[in-house]
Each structure stands twice: as C-alpha cells, then as structure tokens.
Amino acid sequence: MTLPLEVKQINKRFKDGETYIDVLKTIDFKIKKGEFVAIVGPSGSGKSTLLSIIGALLSTDEGNVLINGKSVKNLDESQRSEVRLNDIGFIFQTAELLPYLHAEDQLDLVAKLNNMDKKERKERAKALLTDVGLEKRRKHYPHQLSGGEKQRVAVARAFMNDPALILADEPTASLDEDRSHEIVSLIKQEVKAKDKAAIMVTHDESLLTYCDRVFRMKDHHLIEDK
C-alpha cells in the first residue's frame, strides 16, 4: 500500500563559517492515510527545517522523502513544484490570502494552476468552503473576513487539489485560544473525512489532544511520545 509520507534516515546540516552545524539527525518515520500528526519542540530545534524538507522546499544531505510513493530526492525545481502543487497542501501561520480575490477565487486559483476543469473547480471550491462553514462567505474578500474565517479559507485551499499530504506550520499562531482549537479541530475533521495524512508543527501543547501521534524534536532527533 502506498503511504502518503515516508521519511527515510534524513540528515541535514548547515555551514557556519568553516564548520557545519547538525540540524537533523537520522529522522525516520511514516504516516498513513487518515493520520493527524503533531511535531513539537523549542524554537531552533529543527521543526521548520524538517517541514521544509518534507514539503519539497529544501533538500536533504542524506536520506530521502517519499510523498505518495514518489521520491523527491533527485527532482529538479520544476518537478518539485509539481509535487508541491499536486501532492501537498500547505497551511501557514497566517492565511496568506490574496487581497484582490474573494474566498472562492482563492481556491479556484490553486486549481487553475493545476489545469482543473472550470466547472469542476467551481463545484469543488464551493463544496470545500461549505465543509469549513463558509458557504455564505465565499464571495467575501479577505478584508471582510475575521482572522478565523481567513484561516478557514486557508484550510479549504490546502485541500483543493486533493493532495495526499497536508502540512500545517503553526496554523494557529495568529489566533486566540478559542479560534485555535476551532481551526485544529477543523483540520482534523477534514483529514479524517477525506482520508488524508497531515503534519502540524505547533508550540501549543493544548492542541495535541486532536492529534493521533505526537513527535518531539530533541537534540536534532525526532522522538515519538509513547
């Protein structure tokens, strides 16, 4: 069975002057369909570097990443872009919405880049915004939406191209406590309903109850909570 994500013995180091600093050491794990996983750890522990490698944004020194069964190790930048577009949905710290597009068109743009049929794009965008509770707000522009509503649009957008893997980088960093729980609960709901795999990087320990598994960055290694 093809897994949404396999991380195989990843090592990553950065050069600092004449020396090299280890950031990630022998990171090795897998995620199945329908799993919602959290990665926690202090600032500078390597969480963002790991997420960038998994997201085909950064190369690894040793090891490999397989996304939906496809190795990203030897891909050129054009091929990496295709993987990011087709196989990965990103949710960032802020919604990163385009100010001149209303909610429905934020999703439509992503699908247009993927050459999805216009009718299918419209139907899918409407269905996803309905799923996240924004059916009546789909023609609203970002300045007409609350912080929580903007992040709901971002969640829906991440699922637009039907990716195998969702990557959420501190998705609640700009939200209050109530909205944070609302958004993470929504991500979990969508992951389960659509049988996707998801990784959330977070500092907020109170959100870990929504996750199936929790990993912690410690001394450049990734250790799973038991």
Results as ranks from 00 to 15, higher is better:
Lys112Val: 15
Ile53Thr: 08
Gly55Tyr: 01
Leu75Ile: 11
His140Ala: 12
Ser48Lys: 13
Met116Trp: 11
Leu58Tyr: 08
Val37Phe: 12
His143Pro: 08
Ala38Leu: 01
Ala103Asp: 00
Gln106Pro: 04
Glu120Met: 07
Ala56Cys: 10
Arg124Asn: 05
Leu109Tyr: 01
Val7Phe: 07
Met116Ile: 03
Tyr100Trp: 13
Gly44Ile: 14
Leu129Trp: 09
Lys136Pro: 04
Glu135Gly: 07
Gly55Arg: 01
Ile54Pro: 14
Lys25Tyr: 01
Leu134Thr: 03
Leu129Gln: 06
Asn64Thr: 06
Ala95Gly: 11
Leu66Pro: 06
Leu66Val: 11
Phe36Gly: 02
His143Gln: 11
Ile53Cys: 11
Arg124Ser: 05
Gly63Ile: 00
Lys32Asp: 14
Pro42Trp: 06
Glu6Gly: 00
Leu129Val: 01
Glu120Asn: 11
Lys47Cys: 00
Glu96Met: 05
Lys30Gln: 14
Pro142Met: 05
Glu77Leu: 02
Ser78Glu: 09
Asp87Gly: 07
Gly69Lys: 01
Leu57Pro: 12
Val7Leu: 05
Asn86Pro: 10
Glu62Gln: 13
Lys30Met: 01
Thr49His: 04
Glu82Thr: 10
Asn86Arg: 15
Gln93Pro: 10
Arg124Gln: 05
Gln9Asn: 14
Asn114Asp: 14
Thr94Arg: 10
Gly89Pro: 11
Ile21Leu: 14
Val72Gly: 08
Asn74Ser: 12
Lys33Trp: 00
Asp131Asn: 13
Lys73Trp: 06
Thr19His: 12
Leu85Asp: 05
Ser78Gln: 13
Val83Phe: 01
Tyr141Phe: 14
Glu96Lys: 00
Tyr100Thr: 15
Val72Arg: 04
His102Val: 02
His143Gly: 08
Ser71Met: 10
Met116Asn: 15
Glu120Trp: 00
Asn114Val: 00
Glu123His: 04
Asp117Ser: 04
Lys119Tyr: 09
Ser81Thr: 11
Ser45Gly: 06
Asn11Tyr: 15
Ala56Arg: 03
Gln9His: 14
Val65Tyr: 03
Lys119Glu: 15
Leu66Phe: 08
Asp105Tyr: 04
Glu62Arg: 15
Asn68Ala: 15
Val65Met: 05
Leu75Met: 07
Ser45Tyr: 02
His143Asn: 13
Asp76Ala: 12
Ala38Cys: 09
Leu51Tyr: 02
Phe92Ile: 07
Ile91Phe: 05
Asn86Lys: 15
Lys126Asp: 04
His140Asp: 07
Ala127Phe: 07
Glu35Phe: 13
Gln79Phe: 00
Phe92Lys: 09
Gly46Glu: 05
Leu113Asn: 05
Leu113Glu: 00
Glu96Leu: 02
Lys118Gln: 15
Asp87Asn: 11
Gln9Glu: 10
Asn115Val: 01
Asp76Ile: 14
Gly69Glu: 04
Thr94Gly: 11
His102Asn: 15
